Simulated assay, not measured.
Amino acid sequence: MKEQSTEALIVQNPKLFFPGSYAVKQLVQKIKSAAREFAANDPEFLGMIEKAMEGEARTVARRFAGKQN
Rank of each mutant, 00 (worst) to 15 (best):
M1V: 13
K2A: 15
E3Q: 07
E3V: 09
Q4F: 15
Q4H: 14
Q4N: 13
S5K: 02
S5G: 11
T6L: 15
T6I: 14
E7G: 04
A8M: 02
A8F: 01
A8C: 06
A8G: 03
L9N: 10
L9K: 14
L9Q: 14
L9W: 05
I10S: 08
I10T: 06
V11E: 12
Q12W: 07
Q12G: 08
Q12V: 05
Q12L: 12
N13P: 01
N13A: 07
N13R: 11
P14V: 14
K15Y: 08
F17A: 15
P19M: 03
P19K: 11
G20T: 10
S21P: 06
S21Y: 13
Y22E: 15
V24G: 12
K25V: 11
K25C: 12
L27I: 01
V28R: 14
V28P: 00
V28C: 12
Q29V: 02
K30S: 05
I31W: 09
K32N: 15
S33G: 06
S33V: 05
A34D: 07
A34V: 01
A35H: 04
A35Q: 13
R36T: 08
R36N: 15
R36E: 14
E37H: 03
E37K: 10
A40S: 11
A40P: 02
N41V: 00
N41L: 02
N41G: 07
N41A: 04
D42W: 13
D42Q: 11
P43L: 03
P43W: 00
E44H: 02
E44I: 14
F45Q: 10
F45T: 02
L46T: 06
G47E: 05
G47P: 02
G47D: 05
G47F: 00
G47C: 05
M48P: 01
M48E: 04
M48H: 07
M48K: 14
I49N: 05
E50S: 00
K51H: 04
K51E: 06
K51T: 10
A52H: 05
A52S: 08
E54M: 08
E54F: 08
G55Y: 04
G55F: 07
G55Q: 10
E56V: 11
A57P: 01
A57D: 14
R58H: 01
T59C: 01
T59N: 08
V60L: 07
A61K: 07
A61E: 09
A61Y: 03
A61L: 08
R62S: 12
R62T: 11
R62E: 13
R63C: 12
R63Y: 06
F64D: 01
A65R: 11
A65Y: 09
A65E: 12
G66F: 10
G66T: 05
K67M: 10
K67W: 00
K67R: 03
Q68R: 03
Q68N: 03
N69Y: 06
N69H: 02
N69R: 12
N69S: 05
